[in-house]
Amino acid sequence: QTGSGKTAAFLLPILSHLMVKGVESSAFQALKEPEAIIVAPTRELINQIYLDARKFAYGTCVRPVVIYGGTRTSHSLKEISVGCNILCATPGRLLDIIGKEKIGLTKLRYLVLDEADRMLDMGFREDIENLLRSPGIPSKEERQTLMFSATFPSSIQSLARNILKPDYLFVVVGQVGGACSDVEQVVMEVEEFGKKDKLMEILQETGSERTMVFVKTKKKADFIATFLCQEKVPSTSIHGDREQKERETALRDFKTGQCPVIVATSVAARGLDIENVSYVINFDIPDDIDEYVHRIGRTGRCGNIGRAISFFDKRGDDEQRIARSLVKVLSDAHQEVPAWLEEVAFSAHGMSAYNPRSKFASTDDRQRGESRKDFSTSGFSPSVAQAEEED
Results as ranks from 00 to 15, higher is better:
G350D: 09
S278F: 08
E243P: 00
K196E: 15
E142G: 03
N282P: 05
F152T: 08
E275L: 06
P338T: 15
A8M: 07
A8Y: 08
R54C: 11
H75V: 15
A268V: 12
L131D: 02
G59E: 13
S278D: 06
T226F: 12
T145Y: 09
V65M: 03
K245A: 08
T206E: 11
Q157G: 08
S181Y: 00
S16Q: 11
M200V: 15
H239V: 13
V112Y: 06
V280R: 02
D391S: 15
T206I: 14
I38D: 01
M212W: 02
T7R: 05
T265F: 06
A160W: 04
S235N: 05
G177M: 04
M351D: 14
A250N: 06
S331A: 14
D114L: 11
A9I: 12
E33D: 08
I80V: 08
P34C: 08
L132H: 07
I80R: 04
D364W: 09
M188C: 12
F375L: 13
T217D: 10
T145V: 15
T206A: 14
E319M: 13
D290C: 09
S278W: 01
G194W: 11
V337R: 02
F170P: 03
T71W: 00
A361F: 01
T236P: 00
M122V: 02
I262K: 02
G5W: 09
G297W: 04
G177N: 01
F124I: 11
D121H: 09
P34M: 04
G69F: 01
